[in-house]
Design a protein around this nucleic acid. Structure first.
Lengths: 224, 224
DNA sequence: TCTATATTTGAAAGGATGATGAAAAATGCC
DNA sequence: GGCATTTTTCATCATCCTTTCAAATATAGA
């Protein structure tokens, strides 16, 4: 059974995650801060790490960076709401998923499962500042997309959607999943909205529309 | 491994920096005030100095000035927010970077790395006395902006905003980020304040307003 | 091939966002 | 304290973006 390392300075959080995880049959271990997590990873192999960002001693990002120097363990980050910058930075170092506090343990477990299932090899290209697929270039830092060198005029939603698709390159994404992740859990609108935005995104991407694949009866995915 | 001299009168700050730095493999030494720092630099060579400004006995600026008489050691200044005068004066004596308190150790370490990496060679544009984009010239030393040779009459906030945008050239900056960095983490005001200042800055920049790009749904960036 | 189902597309209304101007509040200077 | 300058708030307007809807098209299965 997979072994999870839970890193958070709040004991409450650790306990909740631990309890749910063990109920699902996972083995668990705990660390109180980044420094401890790094040390534990030196001695022992884990299948996945659930790591808080704000912690005393060593913060989550630095810890992940350090751990990743030697081991390619998938990581799910826990973070307080807000902080776009953090998200960005997180993907730069190749974090596998984000869960925003307060979270439902059930959802966290679902994500843990998802990450474990997909084998977790961090998608190449994603952690870079610039992600390139042939002539399609996404400058994450500058929030800019160029097509064969020419800046594409994406609307905010188009950009967010593209970025999410790319981050989950090769993964089938249902319309609901996209709505939840790109629009937000509090969006109560039509599923077809996704279709329309896919349409517009495709038209913005020109020939590189080919990367956006329709999965009939399922949703979409980015395939490069 | 590079050796860092940490100068601050607060033990807490020294400890945090020391811990992070040592974790990254740096050697560290500490001094409690400017005078001590000067003496230590007489006896020993350091690769970089992290120096607070406000300190008893001898302040950070004077210390750097003194040290620089004999040795060209890169310096990162720590400062409390505010103090425009400080910033100005800092660039005059050739400080390599500024970090405003309260800072994240992570960020400080990143900057230390950056400064060490670039040797002592001033980074293009930003650390120089003058930063120029076509006819837009920013004289950092004199805190002065000229447009096609004609001095522009920027207000302090306009200057700070411009300077921050320029320092983060090409990077998408949200209104919150700008408020936090330019106004300070303790500013509790309207997001729209940024808009107004962008408006005024643009009008001050004349044709070079083109460098300030609006990222709808996101914020602004300086694009040159 | 025909049908049922799903997706793509176009168009239009409504909504959200940023630009702008003006006025109030704060700041600094004499 | 009073004046000038700067900063902030606020309301309005124009614009762009999002969403919805319905018609057209494509796909898979019978």
């Amino acid at each position: 059974m997979p072994k999870i390392l839970i890193v958070d300075d709040e004991k409450m959080i650790r306990n909740v995650v631990k309890e749910y995880a063990e109920f699902e049959g996972y083995e668990t271990a705990e660390a109180e801060n980044g420094m401890e997590a790094v040390e534990m990873c030196r001695k022992e192999d884990f299948d996945i790490i659930v790591m808080d960002i704000m912690m005393p001693r060593l913060d989550g990002y630095s810890a992940v960076k350090e751990i990743r120097k030697t081991k390619q363990i998938p990581v799910i980050m826990l973070s307080a709401r807000g902080e776009e910058y953090d998200k960005l930075f997180g993907f730069e170092i190749g974090v596998d998923d984000y869960v925003v506090k307060p979270f439902s343990p059930k959802e966290l477990l679902a994500r843990i499962k998802a990450v474990l299932k997909r084998g977790a090899a961090p998608e190449d290209g994603v952690k870079m500042e610039k992600i390139t697929f042939e002539g399609l270039e996404i400058n994450v830092t500058g929030r800019e997309v160029t097509i064969d060198g020419v800046p594409a005029q994406l609307t905010p939603k188009e950009y967010d959607l593209l970025f999410y698709l790319v981050r989950n390159k090769g993964i089938a994404l249902s319309r609901e999943k996209l709505l939840e992740e790109v629009w937000g859990y509090d969006f109560y609108g039509d599923d077809r909205t996704v279709d329309t935005h896919i349409k517009m995104l495709r038209s913005s991407l020109g020939e590189y529309r080919k990367f956006i694949v329709t999965l009939r009866g399922m949703g979409y995915k980015f395939d490069a």
